[in-house]
Simulated scan of single mutants.
Amino acid sequence: MAIGELHDVVFDCPDPDALAEFYRQLVGGEILDSDGHWTTLATPRGRVSFQRVDDYSPPKWPGQEHPQQIHLDVKVANLDESEPLVLELGATRLDGAPNGFRVYADPAGHPFCLVTS
């Protein structure tokens, strides 16, 4: 049994509205919300969100000086019940999460979030 379900794929970027519009034109869908720091694109196959990062440095393929910058949001029913389960899998809790989120690193150090909405 899974702990949660994939809720969102999130791209770091300098301009969330512009990148959401690029992907809307590329794959279709509807821009659901935007607050200048976070923009969400809903498609028939799922969500993609874009978050503003100050001093953004784009990834450089295939080099690793600026690695790919993307993370998963995993929707769970209850943060308090899900946390020990992801920690048991080998995740590490990271500091600095906004309200309603908990941020972790997977065993290889990639960040992901647990969310409830």
Results as ranks from 00 to 15, higher is better:
Arg93Gly: 10
Leu26Lys: 12
Pro98Phe: 06
His37Glu: 15
Glu30Tyr: 06
Ile31Gly: 10
Pro84His: 07
Asp55Val: 12
Val103Trp: 07
Glu65Val: 04
Pro59Ile: 00
Leu72Ile: 10
Ala2Asn: 14
Asp33Ala: 15
Val115Ser: 08
Asp12Glu: 10
Glu81Met: 10
Ser117Cys: 12
Thr39Gln: 03
Asp54Ile: 10
Ser49Gly: 08
Asp80Gly: 12
Ser57Ile: 14
Asp55Gln: 15
His37Met: 15
Arg45Leu: 15
Thr39Lys: 01
Asp54Glu: 14
Asp8Ala: 02
Leu26Val: 14
Asp35Gln: 11
Arg52Tyr: 12
Leu87Tyr: 06
Ala2Trp: 07
Glu5Asp: 14
His66Asn: 15
Leu87Phe: 11
Val74Pro: 04
Cys13His: 00
Gly109Trp: 06
Ile3Asp: 01
Ala97Val: 08
Val103Tyr: 03
Gly36Pro: 03
Gln68Glu: 12
Leu114Cys: 10
Gln69Pro: 12
Glu81Ile: 12
Asp55Pro: 02
Ser49Thr: 05
Leu79Gly: 05
Leu89Asp: 08
Pro98Gly: 07
Met1Trp: 13
Cys13Ser: 06
Leu41Ile: 03
Asn78Gln: 03
Leu26Ile: 11
Phe50Met: 11
Pro67Val: 03
Thr40Leu: 13
Thr43Ser: 04
Val74Thr: 13
Val76Gln: 03
Val103Ser: 12
Arg45His: 14
Lys75Tyr: 02
Pro16His: 03
Gln69Ser: 13
Glu21Ile: 11
Arg47Asn: 08
Phe11Gly: 00
Cys113Trp: 00
Ala42Ile: 09
Asp8His: 02
Pro58Arg: 01
His66Glu: 04
His110Arg: 14
Val48Tyr: 02
Ser49Tyr: 03
Asp54Tyr: 08
Gln68Asn: 14
Ile3Met: 00
Trp61Asp: 07
Glu81Tyr: 05
Asp55Lys: 13
Gln69Leu: 11
Arg47Lys: 12
Arg102Met: 11
Gln51Leu: 09
Gln51Gly: 10
Arg93Val: 11
Ala77Ile: 05
Asp55Tyr: 04
Ala42Phe: 07
Glu88Trp: 09
Ala97Pro: 03
Trp38Ala: 02
Arg24Ser: 06
His110Val: 14
Ala91Glu: 10
Asp106Gly: 01
Gly46His: 00
Arg47Phe: 06
Phe11Lys: 04
Ile70Lys: 01
Lys75Phe: 05
Gly28Lys: 01
Pro67Leu: 02
Leu32Asn: 04
Thr40His: 06
Val48Lys: 04
Gly46Pro: 02
Leu79Cys: 00
Thr39Tyr: 00
Phe101Ala: 04
Phe112Asp: 06
Leu41Cys: 08
Ala18Phe: 05
Gly36Gln: 09
Thr116Gly: 09
Ser117Pro: 08
Phe50Leu: 04
Ala91Asp: 02
Pro14Thr: 09
Ala91Lys: 10
Arg45Ser: 15
Asp15Tyr: 00
Glu5Met: 12
Asn99Asp: 15
Tyr23Arg: 09
His7Met: 04
Val53Thr: 13
Phe50Glu: 05
Thr116Ala: 06
Gln69Cys: 06
His66Lys: 09
Asp55Ile: 08
Glu65Cys: 00
Leu79His: 02
Met1Gly: 15
Asn99Pro: 14
Thr39Pro: 02
Ile31Lys: 05
Gly29Thr: 06
Leu26Asp: 01
Gln51Lys: 12
Met1Glu: 13
Asp95Pro: 09
Ala77Cys: 12
Val115Leu: 09
Val53Phe: 01
Asp15Leu: 02
Gly29Phe: 03
Ser82Gly: 05
